[in-house]
Write a protein that binds this DNA or RNA. Structure first.
Lengths: 139, 139
DNA sequence: CGGCTTCTGCTAATAATTAGCATCTGCATG
DNA sequence: CATGCAGATGCTAATTATTAGCAGAAGCCG
């Protein structure tokens, strides 16, 4: 893969932020340094970086695909209320456990990449929910 | 949710095929019985069915979202070569294991829905790959 | 059966991503 | 260090997937 300022910046933005960003967000941030940058170039850069295993693409929720500067695919926790994305504390172990479980139960399928997305409530939103509806089951 | 012929057919198609279908595929099949059916209606029907927990929506690969008539979210195996989608033989156990692993490692996050997608090679394509490149590592 | 609400068909719009093409540029090589 | 060329970029336009708006039709509760 050829190294260009555009790709370097896209990569740097993802690496430094450590966040899950959509193509358009990356674009906005990158334009600070590269004013003429085109959105389509960002898409192509992200594709190149993904093929080079430098970023991971995932479609965690509705809307645009999100990119992250982390080669290993790991579990994601998506909060249905606030939309926040986090990683389980014990990501590596969890991932290993998941892989093992899958390998054992998938009969001949050769797993190369694992995407795990758990949807639910993040600790913060759980707390807020409990404040609003203090009773355990308010049917 | 109001029951209409359109929704009933959409549901029936997903239930009887047991497959992962995109909105457009559902539409094509449903038009046999309901010639005037609109694609946008199919989208709305799928949304209603999803909210009623009668179908599961997942974005397994590129392209359109796929719908399946199965309330419980379960692991998916997506073949990168042939695009085929299958379920691990031991789906329920695997899913249980995954949930347990996640619950243990996600520190206060309340998991409500779990999406697991393993990408790789299905047994068939593994075999075909071995025929083409018989040596284990052809570097 | 009547009425209120919800759904459908139809059309148009939006969002996200990809394609085409001329020009430019990283970089391997002489 | 100049040079050639594969590959990248900017720019524009097209596609794909999905949603929105609105008038008329049709479930379902009484």
């Amino acid at each position: 893969m050829r190294v260009t300022p555009q790709r370097a910046h896209v990569w740097q933005i993802l690496a430094e932020s450590g966040a899950h960003l959509g193509a358009e967000e990356v674009w906005e941030r990158a334009r600070d340094a590269l004013p003429g940058l085109e959105l389509s170039t960002v898409y192509r850069a992200l594709e190149a970086l993904r093929e080079a295993n430098l970023v991971v693409e995932s479609r965690l929720s509705e809307g645009p695909a999100l990119f992250e500067a982390n080669a290993s695919s790991h579990p994601h926790l998506v909060c249905e209320r606030c939309g926040g994305i986090s990683h389980p504390e014990a990501s590596p172990e969890v991932a290993r456990g998941l892989l093992a479980a899958l390998a054992a139960g998938s009969g001949g399928f050769e797993v190369r990449e694992l995407h795990v997305v758990a949807r639910g409530l993040c600790p913060e939103c759980v707390r807020r929910e409990e404040e609003t509806v203090p009773v355990t089951d308010a049917s």
